[in-house]
Design a protein around this nucleic acid. Sequence first.
DNA 1: GACCCGGAAGTCAT
DNA 2: TATGACTTCCGGGT
Length: 476
Amino acid sequence: MKVVSLQLPSGPSMERLPLPFSPTELLWRYPLPWAPPPPSPLGDTKAQLPAGLPPEPRLWTREDVSVFLKWCEREFDLPNFDMDLFQMNGKALCLLTKTDLGERCPGAGDVLHNVLQMLVRDAALLGRVPSSPVTPTARAAPYPPSPHSHPPTPTWTVDGFHHFHSAAAAAAAQPNSVTLSPAPSVDSSGSPQRGDTVTYAPAYAPSVPPTTQAASSGSNHSDSDEEGQYAPPPRSPKEAPITSPAPQNHPTQQHPHYRAQHREFFPNDMPESNTNGRLLWDFLQQLLNDPTQRYTNYIAWKNRDTGVFKIVDPAGLAKLWGIQKNHLSMNYDKMSRALRYYYRVNILRKVQGERHCYQFLRNPTELKNIKNISLLRQQMSPTRVVPQTLVKTEMKEERCDEETVDEEMPTDLSMSASEPWRKRARSDTATAPPSSTQHDKHRISTLIGDNMIMKREVDYSAEHYALNLKSEKCEQ
DNA sequence: GACCCGGAAGTCAT
DNA sequence: TATGACTTCCGGGT
């Protein structure tokens, strides 16, 4: 078990990151699983709930959740919540652990949690809502009763459009249905960001199973480029409500289930073809395309149309990425290594001469599609080979060639696949056949890698990015 | 010294 | 077991 010296991300999220222990948490840290909470000011909460608010939290709509939170602020003299972090319905709210809540509202998470648990318990006792797979009680079992243990992140699926009218009906249709935070990024084009799309885009029918949906909705996920020109973020750094989980260095964080729970940093992603979380490029896109520009102190577009962005806070961004992947020792060096792997699959390239500046060579739609068309790669025919030296030269010149954009594109994102080619490219010529000594397991992927690398670099130029961006807009 | 590059090996999830 | 997508470490260049 590695012990990580944890440094919180610098930047705006810092002030939101909760302390390892909040004062009240100490009182609640080791409760008996089913024991009622100790006497607290919450005792008569249920009776005091705002009028019109259903006593069963899991029945709450997003609006109800907002009402509840506002009420909590007043009732318990809590700091103001960032409502962006609570764009969810009651069911989703109830799924949040104390830690989750603490991350969203440092210092008040335990209070919120206990209020919710009390309401849920009371409702259950009254038999108002049938047991659901996603109820808090259902998910407590597999996990050790550690104060740091976390329940699994549920399979986030579509939850109708904005509301569900009946918990029972919703549970029947979508057992794990929740509405997710952060706030929906429904923009003018109706193409919200990927995670938000899961919940809010009407195009995603509630009945579509997650996997199917992920595949079929690929062209919309993580794609909010339709907003067109990037407008400088109006928000100050202090307003950026990064919901980074408290990166506490605790052994349970290495638990597989704990690993899963970190996805709640961006809980609105869906299971996809890869999937223990979001891919790096996707993560970056999400931050870049955040509708409220909350992450511009970490990463920001320099030119959205050409996909050029700058990592404003390399260390902070790396920390966020580390949190996302539960690799808490992540740093910019490591993250940038992952970014460099994207060079060879023409997802990214470095903007020469500018520190921390990179350029997406593909728009999100392409990237999404690529992930799900692995079969297509077998049909690809090689095009002319571009020696890496030439590619580098072109990159340095930052030229945007006027050649016709090729419709086909590399489809294999495998880094290992291209490694053998890279080796050959260095030692021989780019067209050298695979070495007979190469490991069998890489043989097929090596060929795939050849196809990938042999694409003309210009095909993935800024213009290509912009062109596809425009076509996306048109389609939408 | 920070950044950048890319090889090599390992990890983890699917 | 194979594969994908990193993660980790490192040596070298700028």
